[in-house]
Design a protein around this nucleic acid. Sequence first.
DNA 1: AGCACGCCGACT
DNA 2: GTCGGCGTGCTC
Length: 733
Amino acid sequence: MKDDSPELFAAPKSRVVPVLVPMPAPVPYSYVVPEGMAVEAGSIVQVPLGPRQVIGVVWDGPEGGEVDPRKLRPIEKVFDCPPIDKNMRSFLDWVAAYTLSPPGLVARMALRAPAAFDPDPMVEGLRFSGIVPERMTSARRKVLDLAGDGLSWTKSGLAHAGGVSASVIDGLAAQGVFETVFLPPPPLVAKPDADYAPARLEGPQEEAAEDILEGIRSSGFSVALIDGVTGSGKTEVYFEAIAETIRQGRQVLILLPEIALTANFLERFHDRFGSKPAEWHSDLATRTREKVWRQAATGEVRVVAGARSALFLPFEDLGLIIVDEEHDPAFKQEDRVFYNARDMAVVRARIGDFPVVLVSATPSVESQVNCLAGRYRRIHLPTRFAGAALPDLHLIDMRRSPPERGGFLSPVLLKAVGKTVERGEQALLFLNRRGYAPLTLCRVCGHRFQCPQCSSWLVEHRFRGQIQCHQCGYAEPTPQACPECGTLDHLVACGPGVERIAEEVERHFPDARTLVLSSDLGGVKRLRLELEAIANGEADIVIGTQLVAKGHNFPLMTLVGIVDADIGLANGDPRAAERTFQLLSQVTGRAGRTGRKSHGLIQTFQPQHPVMQALVSGDAAAFYEREISERERAGLPPFGRLVSIIVSADTRGEAETHARQLRHSAPMVEGIAILGPAEAPLALIRGRHRFRLLVHGRRSSDMQAFVRTMLERGPKERRSVHVQVDVDPQSFL
DNA sequence: AGCACGCCGACT
DNA sequence: GTCGGCGTGCTC
């Protein structure tokens, strides 16, 4: 019967599957599955693409439609690793649609571990062969005591455990004492123990932990926001949530701003769970990166602590995401695929049907709005944990207590610093300005040093003898003469930077040990050493930029002085107040963990400003309420979830230049998509976006006119239009 | 002439 | 995103 069927004589119809390839195509490409190859949706494959081989993922749905069959090429190979599961695929699709990014580029973020897709190679190990060495030494004795039971060891592991050098092992191996065996690669990190060292929580912390645990035990999707001042025990509380998830046998992801992923954090985790979490961030060594990827995918790694890109790891069974410092702008990715990892974490949790916990001492306005709207559950920790007291904060009205001529520190602040140092305690002076002075000009002709590339002011850095552009990185040695009029030694520094504050401090306190902490003064290593030195009491006065606000603790600090609290309030950013409040709260939160009485002094020219009032009163709720209504008044979405779409028929270079400009001029923008005129109208109409038009660009037109023009004129027309799109705030839940 | 650079289209 | 092809313009 079969013999009669015409199919017998036709070529066997080969299976064709959609594959997402790492390039900005709007749809997956179709590939032929060779005879005998087993692929399923989610399989990670290598496929030919033009002249090269790339890594892609077999995707869902029918293959892309009409492709010329002659173009079809076969899948080269399938990797021996767990396929990307359905939830992850839905998540990647969702992110692509929401961010208006090509799905292939979103998928690429989940595959950023070049050689992770083949199993880890076995490692060479040793096993006691039963042969005893001719001569016995004490070192050899130690080794044999360990290995004598016939278990397998790695060479370095055995040497380390025996307290001998590797050459002892080599010597024994040379006599045939060991046979070579192959071992599965060691796990990256030990499994955390949920009950290793639980914190003893009391009062509000205990209640908060109970609240969170209830959410986790009842399973399913939920969003909680833990909100409490620095030192209120937020970490201890969410560690309980992690413990519970570990007990359930599911994996945990802790998202942190890159800068907060410190040794200190990892140690705290270790102290609680008896092992460190796996780390994931941009400057991980390739091998480690691959291991983390793979072991997250196989489920070997139970807890990953990572920067925003860790959200795209293909966990085997993710059961909880923590987003610590959820307000931090570092969760926003602002190139290629634009996304905010905090929000996408909520989406991933919803798709995976598990809880997500956002954590911050100074939550973002978005999360506040979500709490008020009842979408997120708020868990408030009102007091400091373990007896630590918050510093009491006072404003210094700079109009009433001005600094002496040529200085920037008010006598009130200087006096407080002096007293602190006298008591043998530490003072921190915070100024969010690197360098010596933000602007330099010529006293004779008024010439201002400006960046030749981007026209912002060049900042003098005296320690390095350079003037630098903080916008684009341009730098040149500080000139002796004015480039305009040639006058020598007539350059004046305008305004303070941390270096200049250090100079002023040293003038007033020549005997105190002062230290400047700034991101441009040496690398991570030096910073770590300096932080350690500060913790050991080897400095009296620390002058720091933004980096002192994050994560690091200064246990001996009892005074924090904000040199200029008004910086950043006047830059036109609708988030200026929010950001300033967050930053200054974090900085002042650095003090007061000693148990000693601590103080914060805030120099401002605007003591009535809501940010200053919120800081000293501690009434954050009123501040946020005001911020939300301010945004309403300005016609901005309370979420700040503003996506700019650059619809561009320009060359890509030009569109990218527009994107950069837009980013500077519109800091509320949460995403920028560069779309061609052919795909833009569709994306806009089809997307989850409620959009109000603010069209600007070389030629203003309304959206309809734009669509018409674009469709009529075709892609050759050189024209670019910017459309700001207000994304529906409801849409991501 | 030789090549560096930027633009552009193709890639299943 | 990445490559090759091709035109423009500059240098050995």
